[in-house]
């Protein structure tokens, strides 16, 4: 049940988006995937979701390279909208239910209720924060083994952030893993227990955060600054 990334490379022309990336995602953890824009976070997520082919190496799920089939175990929440604007909140759920056997409409309804998302409202008329909540509700209503969430808190207010974070904490269990990518470290600091730092398409660190606090007396934000030092942002 490990999602293994082994010596993954991805080149776009001459640009090396990922180079020699190796790390494991284990169940029972919530990971922060941290790094500046362009450090390779999204490329890695898309590769793990079998949406981007590796140039070399790659990502293995239960020992096999990820492919269209593994998407039934690995939920991916892209940072942009993935539903049609004419849909209502409720229809987004039905659309998801058609795609994924592990999707629970009951769970989706419950999450929409918690997040104060009106089911009959058209997605087109939702605010940025509401859309982010709708995306998160859809992703967290799946019973996946791995959840890959790309910047789920981008451009939203504190209350929406709390509601989305609660849906993640509610879903997290010893049987699944959650990976949250972000360039805003403070927003996820208390909810994650492991962190993987990307810098220039490489893994700069992979660590346990409570251990970091206990051993080095450092916060995740401190460590981020230390690792990204000298990096032009």
């Amino acid at each position: 049940m490990t999602l293994q990334t082994k010596e993954a490379e991805k080149n776009y022309g001459r640009t090396k988006a990922l180079q020699g990336v190796t790390f494991d995602i284990e169940p029972g953890n919530i990971y922060a995937l941290l790094g500046p824009n362009g450090s390779g976070k999204t490329t890695w997520m898309k590769m793990a979701a079998a949406l981007v082919r590796p140039s070399a190496g790659g990502v293995l799920w239960e020992g096999e390279p990820v492919c269209a089939k593994t998407r039934s175990d690995i939920a991916y929440l892209p940072t942009e909208d993935f539903f049609y604007s004419w849909m209502t909140v409720e229809e987004v759920g039905k659309y998801f239910a058609d795609f994924f056997a592990d999707f629970s409409m009951d769970r989706y309804r419950a999450l929409c209720g918690q997040m104060e998302l009106p089911e009959k409202q058209k997605v087109r008329t939702l605010s940025t924060g509401m859309r982010a909540k709708c995306r998160a509700a859809a992703a967290m209503s799946r019973a996946a083994k791995v959840y890959l969430l790309d910047e789920p808190f981008n451009g939203i207010d504190l209350l929406a952030r709390d509601q989305i974070m609660n849906s993640i904490l509610e879903t997290s269990s010893p049987d699944n893993a959650v990976v949250i990518s972000s360039h805003l470290v403070e927003e996820i600091e208390s909810a994650v227990n492991r962190a993987i730092f990307f810098r220039d398409g490489r893994v700069a660190a992979d660590l346990d955060i409570e251990e970091l606090r206990a051993r080095e007396g450092k916060s995740l934000a401190d460590k981020y600054r230390e690792l990204m030092q000298g990096k032009e942002v």
């Binding site: 974070m165 609660n166 904490l169 208390s190 909810a191």
Partner: peptide
Amino acid sequence: QQYQINPNT
């Protein structure tokens, strides 16, 4: 959920 912390914590 109350403290918005990791379940392992």
